[in-house]
Write a protein that binds this DNA or RNA. Sequence first.
DNA 1: ACCTCACTACGTACGGTGTACGTAACTAGG
DNA 2: CCTAGTTACGTACACCGTACGTAGTGAGGT
Lengths: 239, 239
Amino acid sequence: MVGRPAVPEVIWARPERAGRGPKPAFSRADIADAAVRIADAEGIDAVSMRKVAAELGCGTMSLYNYVPRKEDLYELMVDRVSAAYELPEHPSGDWRADLVALAHQTRALMHRHTWVPRLMSPVYGFSPNALRFLEYALSCLDGLDARFGEKMELIAMVNGMVTTYVSNEIATAERSRSLPWSEEQEQAARTGYLISQIMTGKYPRMAAAFAEDSGPIDLDGVFDRALDRVLDSFERSAS
Amino acid sequence: MVGRPAVPEVIWARPERAGRGPKPAFSRADIADAAVRIADAEGIDAVSMRKVAAELGCGTMSLYNYVPRKEDLYELMVDRVSAAYELPEHPSGDWRADLVALAHQTRALMHRHTWVPRLMSPVYGFSPNALRFLEYALSCLDGLDARFGEKMELIAMVNGMVTTYVSNEIATAERSRSLPWSEEQEQAARTGYLISQIMTGKYPRMAAAFAEDSGPIDLDGVFDRALDRVLDSFERSAS
DNA sequence: ACCTCACTACGTACGGTGTACGTAACTAGG
DNA sequence: CCTAGTTACGTACACCGTACGTAGTGAGGT
């Protein structure tokens, strides 16, 4: 009982303000905002403890008073932008519509902050806003006669599907955007190589796929269709 | 015409063996194997140019003769393990069964090499084995009356869904495995905090979800069911 | 046969990273 | 008021990706 496990603390478990010493100069929100600002502007790889500290105007190591490890900084960031979820007090009663609305919010959030999919990947966090989200999503499914495990499965499936789709959307969007020279050449090299491979005739179907005039792609439509399919199939298996 | 764009080359475009100088000491397969060995044993974050070079028994900078950038090393790794795909000469004619079999291969591959989901995330590579995979997957769908764009959508959806699920499986598996002390305490702290939050009564449904005796979870069943749903919905919308 | 030059090999060095540790200043509870 | 816990932060270490320069090697063209 001498020392609580000091090393592997969960950041949400420690209070923002400790009682004793001088009052902290920054709040968690301040720190998360600074990191989010950097990530939005320069990408998630540009987020380093030094840069965040500089953005805040404090010494690098001062950050470690607030954020024990960099991984925790990521959790702070995701939780911070997740505060933007607008969750009604009570679901509408139409669980499908509610889940679709929720998925649209997630998608919009990821488009506003394109680094979110990368950070979401590993494990569910249990940040305040993550708990808020999960509880609300479960409440949307109150009318459903299913075990909680199945409901969690559905929520995970929808979230995973959204993450997958938005990741692809972001990747293709970055492809067509004006890129810093080097990346543009990089892309040219990639497609050039791809064409050369297709030219060999070893991949006739891929050749046809690339030759196909697909017209303007309706990303929103693709997304909604896929989401509908997932919900369809769940509804059918649940009934 | 003086200098081809030297910087942003695609690794698959340059021949393994250049005609002129002394013959290379290693093949791409050697290098990829070394990196895969490290990633399997110590995780993907332990894969560094120095470590791979040491594993091969050569100087760090010698690696750069074979691998222009670290990102290319990752491509080599994914392609190398993707060689394990056993793709029949001709699909069976039952596209659903073929796609299910393919998904099972992907899942098994990712369980053998748990770092693959992390590396797959960003964009489709066009490595030899990726092309082989895509061409075969398209050939499975030859009988379907759909545009190539839609077929690619389906393939992407299945792959994304597999990646999402296996990522979760791996995460939960690592949770229950015997962990290096620190990580075990880390987990204890996480669940401890989660319980304390649930105890507050602010999240009644999550509390119920955790209280629910879900019995032994059949991961294979969950996976197959989810996969079936995705294919179901596509079949219906295609018919 | 030889010359030449692309290619291989690799040591050194630079700028970046996360973060352990030690020290000094500060402030709220006893 | 005193003291103990907090905050602030400079220094330092180990590690990373990789630019650059140099030396050696061996196949191609002549």
